[in-house]
């Protein structure tokens, strides 16, 4: 219960949660505005997403999901049918799978505006040495870039944009999504370690009048599958790395 165990106990033995294993995601992936019209089109860049969070268990929000799986969901500014959500989350899962096959953190993340993909974020923490470069943050910057190119007002675009991501956004990303005034986030599994949509804190719906606007969440889409992918990924991580002292069973958000 001290302020900090400075120098005494550091988190250094913990495998970095903000850092995918080295070797992942090298090079200059395109960060620019990407536009993909059809969620089922096949021309996807490999491994374009990875906001990773190792998650201990699948979403427990299954019951909440049931009522929303069949109905169209309207959040402030957007309305998405069940079929649309299904198709985009399918795409996000596909991105996550591709990332896994390429040895990267298996997370898929898409920003969709008017049925058009404006951004596909992937984790860039290692290559930028900036721990805030989660897939969602990268995707937000891609949408901003798109707005800049197309001469659109970011506020107006974000207010009608839906984020599809295979893992619950972390606390930082949830606050960023509020600040951008995104109305709706559809995600797969929970992020027990860093989740900002209820798992650790509920930033999505918290009363924070100076931090953008709350957003609606639809969790639980193929959660178990998303968790399994993350588990597989972290199992194959450097076997020589010391085991995390904290919550060995769980993983982390990248």
């Amino acid at each position: 219960m001290r302020l900090l165990r400075a120098g005494k106990q550091r988190p250094s033995r913990i495998r970095s949660p903000v850092c995918p294993p080295s070797g992942s995601s090298p090079g200059n992936s395109s960060c620019g505005p990407l536009t993909f019209r059809c969620p089922l089109s096949s021309a996807w860049l490999p491994a374009c997403a990875c906001s990773a969070a190792l998650v201990s268990r699948a979403s427990s929000c299954g019951s909440g999901m049931e009522e929303t799986t069949t109905a169209a969901v309207a959040a402030r500014g957007v309305s998405v049918s069940a079929e649309e959500r299904e198709a985009w989350m399918e795409k996000a899962m596909h991105m996550a799978k591709e990332a896994l096959e390429n040895g990267e953190v298996p997370v898929g993340c898409l920003m969709v505006y008017n049925n058009e993909v404006l951004a596909k974020g992937r984790n860039e923490v290692n290559q930028t040495k900036n721990a805030t470069r989660h897939a969602e943050m990268v995707a937000i910057d891609q949408v901003l870039e798109w707005c800049h190119h197309c001469g659109r007002t970011p506020t107006e675009v974000f207010e009608h944009t839906v984020l599809y991501v295979t893992v619950e956004p972390c606390i930082m990303c949830a606050a960023a999504l509020r600040l951008m005034k995104i109305p709706l986030v559809v995600y797969g599994c929970q992020n027990e370690r860093f989740g900002g949509c209820g798992s650790v804190l509920d930033i999505a719906s918290a009363d924070l009048p100076n931090t953008g606007t709350p957003f609606k969440c639809i969790p639980g889409y193929r959660a178990e599958e998303a968790v399994e992918m993350l588990k597989t990924f972290y199992k194959q991580e450097n076997p020589n790395a010391p085991k995390s002292k904290v919550r060995k069973k769980e993983g982390h958000k990248c």
Binding site: L4, A6, P11, P17, V18, A131, T132, C170, I171, M172, A174, A175, A176, L179, F194, G196, L201, I203, L208, N210, T211
Partner: peptide, 15 residues
Amino acid sequence: CVMCAMALVHSRIQR
């Protein structure tokens, strides 16, 4: 703010 505070957690700031 919340975003920045969590960014500092991710960045492993000391103080």
